[in-house]
Design a protein around this nucleic acid. Structure first.
Lengths: 214, 214
DNA sequence: CGCGTACTATAACGTTCGATATAGAACTGC
DNA sequence: GCAGTTCTATATCGAACGTTATAGTACGCG
């Protein structure tokens, strides 16, 4: 059957997964891949066809696992259980110790900030925004606006997370009304202020009302 | 004072902004930039120094506007008003008609899917996940799990948005406990089921409890 | 052994990337 | 008009990119 392969293909795929996770799709060069796999370019092309085909293999393996998580979540007896299990499970994946932080699929588009001053800077700017929100919430804590045991850090991060998620959705093609109805749900996590002065309230907006709490 | 510049520099920056928004930072080549600006490479380098410096100008202009939105939101009399104003304002930016969809700063890392089969495929995979959630929620609607007037579409998108946002946060360095406390807040938007069978509930997790609703 | 097949090594392909050396053109101030 | 400065055009740089042609090596099978 010809000359036997001198490297383990599954190990090579794992190596590639790690690289894509850390450096993104375009950020991972063939030199990176073949170097880490300790094979030469022709061996790479013989085994995988090209970079994109390997990437698709990697992502498909990843999504198989993600789908397992999703299916398992969907089997929860309550829809809240579905949400809970999926989000916590996903968070575990994002912070798993055996790979770079974040989602492989999203990181592949959003290359790592490591060794990249531009991206590190962008991440900093994002962080700054969260800081400002946190300070505002911390100041409000203990007043009628926010109970004393609220967590400004968690609240600020929640707003930021929602914002980044909206940005991803928008880029994928979500329309304004989609985003608005999503925000309407997101705001249900928020405490209504106890009778703020009505004339100073934020610009009233018509918004979809999911009415989850009957 | 020497030879006058033959192109308008503000117009050129606007052109660059549009390109970065649509194609991302690395996805926008100097050929793209100089071509759209209708200037040659030396003119570009004379005017802007290099690609990164131009990008920083563009992003700084963008963040100035974002900060205006944020400051304006922070001046809201209630913290809920802050969240509301900021999120809706951001959504407006994301879907603004004068530029590519999404956030300029995030898109710069997450290059556009247009003319890119790999990224289009990744966006599709993300969409599929939302579809599955929606179907599950739609099926639950009208049962004890979910009231009849709930919106499966908005709920599913909310979970997805939260997930993508978590992914961005995780890549920027957020720790697992940060994500968990964020999720705890996110789940406050969710209706608790009316007494599900306890033995079938999802794996109980200790989680930070912001206790927003006293 | 020797043929066919499967894999690997060397070396280089053409293209695109961001960036520039060199020279010349267009303006102001003297 | 000449000097000094500022911007532009041509033409090209070296490096890195993904990819491949060519040749050779190692195995199973007859």
């Amino acid at each position: 059957m010809g000359r036997p392969r001198e490297f383990d293909i599954d190990t090579a795929i794992k190596t590639a997964t790690e690289l894509f996770w850390r450096k993104g799709y375009e950020g991972t060069s063939l030199t990176d891949l073949t170097g880490a796999m300790r094979i030469t370019a022709p061996s790479f092309y013989f085994a995988f066809g090209n970079k994109e085909k390997l990437f698709r293999i990697v992502i498909e393996q990843y999504y198989e696992k993600q789908l397992e998580l999703l299916e398992s979540a969907l089997r929860e007896p309550t829809v809240r259980g579905v949400a809970e299990k999926f989000l916590y499970g996903y968070a575990d994946v994002l912070t798993g110790p055996s790979h770079a932080p974040g989602c492989l699929a999203l990181n592949s588009s959003l290359p790592s900030a490591e060794d990249d001053t531009v991206r590190a800077w962008l991440a900093d700017l994002r962080g700054e925004l969260t800081v400002r929100l946190r300070k505002r919430f911390a100041k409000a804590r203990g007043t009628v606006e926010l109970p004393m045991d609220a967590e400004p850090d968690a609240l600020a991060r929640y707003i930021a997370v929602t914002a980044w998620g909206l940005a991803v959705e928008a880029q994928s093609g979500a329309k304004r009304k989609d985003l608005h109805s999503t925000i309407a749900v997101a705001l249900m996590a928020w405490p209504s202020a106890d009778v703020p002065r009505p004339e100073q309230r934020s610009t009233s907006r018509k918004r979809a009302s999911p009415r989850l709490r009957q």
